[in-house]
Lab assay of single mutants.
Amino acid sequence: GKMTGIVKWFNADKGFGFITPDDGSKDVFVHFSAIQNDGYKSSDEGQKVSFTIESGAKGPAAGNVTSL
């Protein structure tokens, strides 16, 4: 299901970062391709987002990331 969290950091040059879930669980990796914004796929530190957890090649990753 959908979770909410805060972007801990995001490196636009490398195209990835981490989200800290609101439920206190482990930080989740986020790749720019998962960000659902139109246009520039980046996110700012401290941005509140909703997301799903997908199982990626390197473990859990955020999917369907949407700014709230």
Rank of each mutant, 00 (worst) to 15 (best):
D27W: 06
G56F: 08
T66G: 04
A61C: 14
H31L: 07
G63L: 12
F10S: 00
G46H: 09
F32D: 03
I35Q: 02
I35L: 13
I19S: 00
I19V: 03
F29L: 03
F10T: 02
P60S: 08
F29D: 02
F51R: 00
V30I: 09
D27T: 04
G59I: 03
T4G: 02
W9Y: 07
A62H: 01
S33Q: 06
D38Y: 14
Q36H: 10
F18Y: 08
G24A: 03
A57R: 12
P60V: 11
G1H: 13
T52V: 11
Y40S: 09
F10V: 05
G1M: 12
G1D: 12
G5N: 00
G24R: 03
D44N: 15
G39D: 11
D44V: 15
S67L: 15
G15S: 04
F16W: 14
I53L: 10
I35S: 02
S33A: 06
T4Q: 06
P60L: 11
A61D: 02
D22A: 06
D13S: 13
S25D: 07
L68V: 11
G39C: 14
I53M: 10
D13I: 13
G39Q: 10
P60I: 10
D44Y: 15
S33T: 12
V49Q: 00
F10L: 03
A62S: 01
T66H: 09
D23N: 09
V49A: 00
A61I: 15
A12L: 10
V30C: 07
V28H: 00
F32A: 11
K48S: 07
I53E: 01
W9I: 02
I35G: 01
L68H: 08
T20W: 05
D38K: 12
W9T: 01
S50K: 05
G5I: 04
V30F: 15
G63R: 13
S25Q: 06
F18N: 00
S43V: 15
K58A: 09
S67N: 13
S67K: 14
V28C: 07
G46L: 11
T20E: 07
A12C: 14
A62P: 03
P21D: 02
K14I: 09
V30Q: 00
T4V: 06
G56K: 06
V28I: 13
D13W: 10
A61W: 15
G15D: 02
K48A: 11
E45A: 15
D22F: 07
P21H: 01
D13A: 13
D23A: 03
Y40H: 10
K8Q: 04
K58D: 08
E45N: 13
K14C: 11
A61G: 04
N37M: 14
N37C: 15
A34M: 07
T4P: 02
D27Q: 05
T4N: 05
K58W: 15
T20N: 02
K8H: 06
G39W: 14
G46D: 06
D38L: 14
